[in-house]
Amino acid sequence: MLRYVLKRLVSLVISLAVASLVIFLAIEVVPGDPAAYMLGMNAQADTLAALRDQLGLNGSVFERYTSWVGGMLVGDFGTSYTYRTPVAEMIGDRMWISLPLAAYALTLSTVIAFPAGVWAASRRGSAADMGVMGVTQLGVAIPNFWFAMLMVLVFAINLGWFSAGGFAGWEQGFLAGMKSLTLPAIALALPQASILTRVMRSSLLDTLSEDFIRTARAKGLTRRQVLWRHALRNAMIPVLTIIGMQFSFLLAGAIIIENVFFLPGLGRLVFQAISARDLIVVESVVMLLVFAVIMVNFAVDLAYAAVDPRLRGRR
């Protein structure tokens, strides 16, 4: 078990290192001179020099990379060129909208998908199964941001149950904050819940056709007992993979959905930074998101080992 965790830790560090290198190369090296790019064509020579100095562009590529990574390790993401404030501060504020939104949506989709998938699988071929599969077929096909717009139209504009956008702020209390995130989270969760329901159902059906299920039935277990005691945990293994992959889609989705609800999260920040050519902010936000995805997948790897003794190795 310890060996497995160590192996995953090593691979986590390597992933983070390679990902940071890719981001660094894409944003700071590929464009040639980032300072010239950020200032545009009519830049004054001395402004350019000042910016280059501020960005530390005078060192070698290797020095710049190590100082960037070294800075991030102590929480220094550099200073935004357009806002003239530390990037860490800007991200710090906004991350507490995007990350909770993604987590909220992940929770919702899991809470919906598990019972739905189990229910459909245990009634395979029935009207209930067909109904669930039909709904998920629609859910997979619907663009989440469009669904969000429709929900704004119905629940905010026509029914007035929610505000059409904006964020109450966590200082208004946890519930008020959650309420502002509820419509966005539902919009994000629906397609993911549909995918997860389908995966859950098919994984469970696959497991139910395994030999050991028949062995368990021969012991005298009822269909229901076999499902709960033997099939479900085994079926979780592929489902975990999908949950891990979904988190990165949810984060990306969260950034898009923020636009629909005018939420001041990382999405707004990064799109503004793109139009302002503020590469420092873009780089930091992308790194933060990739970091979150890699960490979640590390957690999923650990969850595998908890479910599947074969990964823990022989004793």
């Binding site: 395994e210 030999d211 062995t215 005298g220 009822t222 945990r233 085994n234 479910v307 599947d308 074969r310």
Partner: peptide
């Protein structure tokens, strides 16, 4: 009935299958 059969399986009649590699729950 199915319930009565569950009562018999494992108690009055037991069964052993061909493929031992897949006949056991791998995570129990």
């Amino acid at each position: 009935s199915e319930a009565e059969l569950c009562h018999l399986r494992g108690r009055t009649m037991g069964m052993v299958f061909q493929e031992p590699m897949t006949a056991l729950n791998p995570i129990q």
